[in-house]
């Protein structure tokens, strides 16, 4: 067991040992996961951070290379060589990392993401509260689930029980002089109000590509992409140049299947209509990723439900799909 004060000291020490520390801090927009200097600023009592761990492993904007047309050069830019401690993200976000790993460190590996993951330690803070949108337990995880975490901190009163779940977690605890706790039970996990039954969903999706249900479930979606930006497992990106310059940078930026331009070619648009784009979103998460890496690309963090300005509720959509004959 470790007190909050000693925990903050340990994080301070990690910072001194050259870890870049990402942790939740209160901002105007809500609690954000950001790189911090002073562990005293860490927020402990939020449900979830607004942003996800994608900001650490697969940043919104990232320079891939610097080009100089006249000098005939295109030099790779890499800033993925530092050690990173992600402190205090939630179990659902840690689980999402596992899904991104399976997709981006696959047959062909995204070198920057993989390099960052190799140097990343995940010290996760198990949840003591949940809100109306949380449904992680319906996706096979839970408020105290260790999936994806190197170290899991379980709240017990005002203190924390320390559990290591990977060799990397063990090594990290050793490095900071901390010891994992055995045989101690933490506070019970919060009860989740929201539950969704997804039995049979995959079998339905295997067959219902052309079903009219996609029109009704996407009725309120305006393809704004908010759910994508909030989603911890969405990983799609665009590659562009700082334009018009003979010297500049090649960037990659997040991009999403919610936008029509995502698949639009000069002479051909294979995916026509909002219902088709929404179908891609659901199919990709609950069928295509299952077909490819045997994981559902949803952890039940509920961010898309909280974010959608038009009240599209993923759980209701899944229920409609499961119940559709």
């Amino acid at each position: 067991m470790i007190s909050k004060e000693r925990l903050l000291d340990a994080i301070r020490e990690a910072g001194a040992k050259d870890y870049a520390v990402f942790a939740p801090v209160a901002k105007d927009a809500g609690v954000m996961l950001e790189e911090i200097d002073d562990p005293a600023s860490i927020n402990f009592d939020h449900v979830l951070t607004v942003n996800t761990l994608k900001d650490v492993g697969l940043p919104r904007v990232e320079a891939l290379a610097e080009f100089d047309r006249d000098a005939r050069t295109m030099e790779a830019i890499r800033d993925d060589d530092g050690k990173v401690l992600v402190f205090g993200s939630r179990p659902c976000d840690a689980a999402a990392q596992k899904i991104l790993d399976a997709i981006l460190i696959g047959e062909i590996t995204d070198s920057r993401y993989a390099a960052r993951r190799e140097r990343m330690v995940m010290m996760t803070l198990a949840c003591s509260t949940a809100d109306d949108a949380c449904f992680c337990s319906s996706m096979g995880y839970g408020p105290h689930d260790p999936t994806g975490s190197d170290v899991l901190l379980l709240p017990k009163g005002t203190e924390f029980i320390v559990r290591s779940h990977t060799p990397r977690g063990e090594e990290f605890l050793r490095e900071l002089g901390m010891t994992p706790d055995a045989d101690v039970e933490g506070d019970p996990p919060p009860e989740l109000k929201r539950k969704v039954e997804t039995g049979g969903l995959k079998e339905k999706l295997d067959k219902n590509f052309d079903d009219p249900i996609w029109n009704s479930v996407s009725e309120n979606c305006v393809s704004c992409g908010a759910c994508f930006y909030m989603c911890p497992t969405c990983h799609c990106f665009d590659v562009i140049d700082e334009s018009g310059l003979s010297r500049g940078r090649r960037l990659r930026l997040w991009d999403t299947c919610s936008f029509a331009g995502f698949t639009k070619m000069a002479s051909h648009q294979p995916r026509v209509g909002r219902h088709a784009r929404y179908r891609q979103r659901i199919m990709h998460k609950f069928k295509y990723t299952v077909d490819n890496v045997n994981l559902v690309a949803c952890v039940g963090d509920g961010r898309c439900i909280r974010a959608c300005p038009y009240g599209v509720d993923l759980c209701e959509v899944l229920e409609a799909l499961v119940g559709n004959e």
Binding site: I103, L104, G106, E107, I108, D110, F209, C234, H235, C236, F237, D238, V239, D255, C257, F262, T263, P270, Q280, M283, H284, K287, Y288, D291, N292
Partner: peptide, 14 residues
């Protein structure tokens, strides 16, 4: 965009 299966853009089904 990526050419290698990571940017998520070019799928037809799975």
């Amino acid at each position: 965009k990526c050419g290698v299966g990571t940017c998520g853009r070019c799928n037809i089904g799975s």
